[in-house]
């Protein structure tokens, strides 16, 4: 057995069934008669279970846990529950903004978040899809509007240009008509003189 450095190590060895009978009895006498110390034992057990459930135990510790802790059905039930709990807790705390400080994690699951939203993940997908559709729709409307404005502006410019060309053509036609009339008058006068 590894050397025991701290109370935490001692508790862990106890939970994993790695203490001698004398050490075990001494620890029980000390920890069961003091409520706070007894709570410390329970807390250490929950932490150990949660670390196992999250897969954060080292290979050797995981082996120790499976060999020394999972020795009866009640303990296996704790392990199964811890797996479900860590999964649900991680899902509930994952969707929010990146963490900046300890408080940010608390805020993520604060009163503002609807628990039913994450308790029923199948409902989350349509809501996300709906949001995506609305955003895409808004973008399309925005882009369509801009495109229409540009097209209208272009058409207006072309219309103005056409009007200008038409006016020029009209003036040119008038000038030419006047010149033709002058030439006809000149031709008539020369014919009368001749």
């Amino acid at each position: 057995m590894d050397r025991i450095h701290t109370q935490h190590d001692l508790i862990e060895h106890y939970l994993l069934g790695e203490l001698s009978e004398a050490e075990r009895t001494a620890l029980e006498d000390e920890y069961f008669s003091d409520v706070e110390k007894y709570d410390r034992l329970c807390k250490a057990e929950d932490d150990l279970l949660d670390r196992y459930a999250r897969g954060s135990l080292t290979g050797a510790d995981r082996e120790r846990f499976e060999r020394g802790y999972l020795t009866n059905s009640r303990r296996r039930r704790h392990a199964m529950f811890a797996k479900a709990l860590t999964k649900v807790v991680d899902e509930a705390t994952r969707p929010a903004a990146p963490q900046t400080e300890g408080g940010a994690r608390i805020e993520r699951v604060g009163p503002g978040l609807s628990w039913r939203t994450w308790l029923a993940p199948p409902l989350r997908v349509p809501r996300f899809a709906l949001s995506l559709t609305l955003i895409t729709g808004a973008l399309l409307i925005g882009l369509g509007g801009a495109w229409l404005a540009i097209q209208t502006s272009r058409l207006r410019a072309r219309l103005a240009e056409s009007r200008r060309e038409s006016e020029t053509q009209r003036r040119l036609a008038e000038t030419q008509a006047r010149r033709i009339a002058d030439l006809e008058a000149q031709y008539k006068r020369l014919a009368d003189e001749g």
Partner: peptide, 17 residues
């Protein structure tokens, strides 16, 4: 809310939380 907040994270972060 308590159970989710209490059992989130691990190690140092969990203690701080």
């Amino acid at each position: 809310a308590l159970i989710i907040e209490y059992y989130q994270d691990e190690g140092r972060a969990r203690i701080d939380d």
